[in-house]
């Protein structure tokens, strides 16, 4: 055992605070980078992701509890950033082109979410219900039935809060088939406002007690 002789030799920094890992709040973001997102929309998404990071880092508790992941999809799906803390979240600049294989992308995103959950559970962490943001035009080039089944099952078991957001010109009817929660349509180019809303509301969830109901603010960036 370490012998402590004088006040000068002791600092409270010697007291280890990592008895139990913080509860985790996983937030995967799945962005449609098909041709329809070319130009201003994809530029706004890139700026919005940076804002999300900055806002989450500003709240020390949220910064230690939230884990972000970024996936983008067009004809295929790419894990751009696997789950990490906001300060390690360094998304590449997304570019848009190609088709919209929405179903496969959602399934891939659920896969990495489940993998991370299992990993953290083994390490003894507790959880907030994960949030999942999908940003898309929903003009899907593949079948979304299996993705919809998985999303709805997770939602009904209260294992997932799924936030489908349709960009301008999105096929909202198709998007509404994907989840129990009705999709929102982004108004115009309100990407920045939308990411701001997610950072503020996610942070208030991440500092609550796991299981507690946290009221969300009105999403003024969207139409229902």
């Amino acid at each position: 055992m370490k012998k402590i002789n004088s006040t000068a030799q002791f600092s409270e920094a010697e007291i280890g605070l990592e008895g139990t890992p913080d509860p985790r709040c996983l937030f995967p973001i799945l962005v449609d980078t098909s041709g329809s997102m070319t130009g201003k929309p994809i530029a706004e998404v890139n700026a919005g992701l940076q804002l999300l990071k900055t806002n989450l880092i500003a709240d020390s508790l949220a910064a230690s509890r939230v884990e972000l992941a970024l996936l983008s999809f067009s004809d295929s799906v790419t894990v751009d950033v696997d789950f990490c803390s906001p300060d390690n979240f360094n998304p590449p600049t997304l570019a848009a082109s190609g088709g919209t294989n929405l179903g496969a992308a959602v399934i891939k995103c659920l896969d990495i979410l489940n993998a991370r959950t299992a990993e953290l559970r083994t390490a003894g962490a507790s959880f907030y219900r994960p949030w999942f943001l999908l940003l898309t035009d929903a003009k899907s080039g593949d079948d979304i039935a299996e993705a919809a089944r998985l999303v709805k099952e997770a939602e009904s078991k209260r294992r997932l809060s799924f936030f489908p957001v349709g960009v301008l010109g999105a096929d909202m009817e198709e998007l509404s088939k994907l989840s129990l929660r009705p999709p929102r349509q982004l108004e115009g180019m309100n990407f920045i406002e939308m990411f701001d809303w997610f950072s503020v509301n996610l942070a208030s969830v991440a500092v609550s007690t796991p299981g507690e109901q946290v009221p969300l603010t009105d999403p003024t960036w969207a139409t229902a």
């Binding site: 402590i4 010697e14 007291i15 280890g16 008895g19 139990t20 003894g124």
Partner: peptide
């Protein structure tokens, strides 16, 4: 300070928390 000081859910003491805390308080 529960999550800092205990290993949950078992509730065991986290020695890196209590050992230096008690060592110091005792003197």
């Amino acid at each position: 300070i529960m999550r800092l000081a205990l290993k949950l859910p078992q509730g065991e003491p986290h020695p890196p928390f209590f050992t230096p805390l008690f060592d110091r308080l005792e003197c």
